[in-house]
């Protein structure tokens, strides 16, 4: 099929895969990408439970560090997954 906008997916070279955990689940992502992107790629969009309401699942929304919807816990601290670089062995938990 003719495409005016080419598909570049195969032309993108990514760094090596590293392992990390999300709430105990072992996942893989690319070293250096944003944790939000790694979780998205691993099929985990539902990152947290909002503290109220009947439709409480939440995931990354603004991807620019503002909305705080991607908040996760790393080493006992709340951080924005969209502003966290994936490193080898990162232990990520949901905010409770």
């Amino acid at each position: 099929m003719i495409r005016l906008v080419p598909n570049h997916a195969s032309k993108i070279k990514r760094r090596d895969k590293v392992g990390f955990t999300f709430d105990g689940l072992r996942l893989e992502g690319r070293r250096g990408e944003s944790l939000a992107a790694a979780l998205l790629q691993a099929g985990h969009l539902n990152l947290r439970t909002a503290p109220f309401g009947d439709a409480p699942a939440r995931g990354a929304f603004c991807h620019m560090g503002i909305c705080q919807e991607c908040a996760v816990r790393i080493e006992g601290r709340t951080v924005e997954a969209c502003r966290t670089e994936l490193t080898d062995g990162l232990v990520v938990e949901r905010v409770s």
Binding site: K11, K13, R14, R30, R31, G32, E33, E85
Partner: peptide, 9 residues
């Protein structure tokens, strides 16, 4: 681009 991208168009 993040450091995860080694090369891209």
């Amino acid at each position: 681009k993040s450091s995860a991208i080694l090369a891209a168009p």
